[in-house]
Amino acid sequence: MEGFSLKTKGAVILFFLVLLVFALATLHTSDSVYGKDSAIIEKGKKVYKKYCIICHGEKGDGKGLIGIIHRVEKSGLVWYVYPRDFTVGVFKFRSTPTGCLPTDDDLLRTITNGIPRSGMPSHKDLSLEERKAVIAYIKTFSKRWVEEEPCDEVIEAKMPKWVGTPESVKKGEKIYVKMKCWECHGYEGKGDGPKSDKLKDDWGDKILPFDFTTGTLKRGSSPENIYMTYITGLDGTGMPSYEDSIPNEEDRWHLVSYTLKLMKRVK
């Protein structure tokens, strides 16, 4: 291998990297083929029965025993957070654009970490295999998974260093006002905007906009998650996607800065 220059070495490594990424990507798409693999579905069903059924219900319609009685109140309003109804195939926490199905990684993240504010526990104590199997199983509840092609676009959040600086917070405030986030979330971010008490989700249940002053995010507490929330939208909740209305990448992060301020996480 004499004379093999550093440059070519680099090129070879790059080639392997590309191969790897490609392999991962195909692996990713073959995940959805799980849906047809009955052994995995059977395994997933067992996991579902042991861990999920009490909330998401036998039929996957979110009518498990707990769901019926989970009540939340804020500013004198009462609403119910039901476990997700999987029969509709609508999901809130995606990396895909609004209207799309989530990726398996999205579902895996939700199931692994849970949704503390909604009472969905983490499932870190399950093996990766078990979690993947249960994903395959919950997909059987909605036809969307068979009938629709998955969306190609996956949105990524790469946080600039300056997020949270006072200048950025200031710029973000202007965007918060301009984009009318306050119509639902209120000027002070308390979730009490003029539209807040009329909102219903896709399932016809009362839903309240997030109260930023509580700081307890459903999707996860990192700034990247906030970015993803309003760029991809929270499907099913009435909270739209701002992917098109805030095209400028910097503006998007200024808005994140401002929401961090509302949550008292920066000054």
């Binding site: 970490n113 849970g114 503390p116 700081g215 008292k264 996480r265």
Partner: peptide, 17 residues
């Protein structure tokens, strides 16, 4: 009626061991 969650520096937002 409730705490400001992040006043406590160890407030848990992600379950882990």
């Amino acid at each position: 009626h409730r705490y400001d969650m992040f006043e406590h520096p160890l407030a848990v937002t992600e379950n882990k061991v």
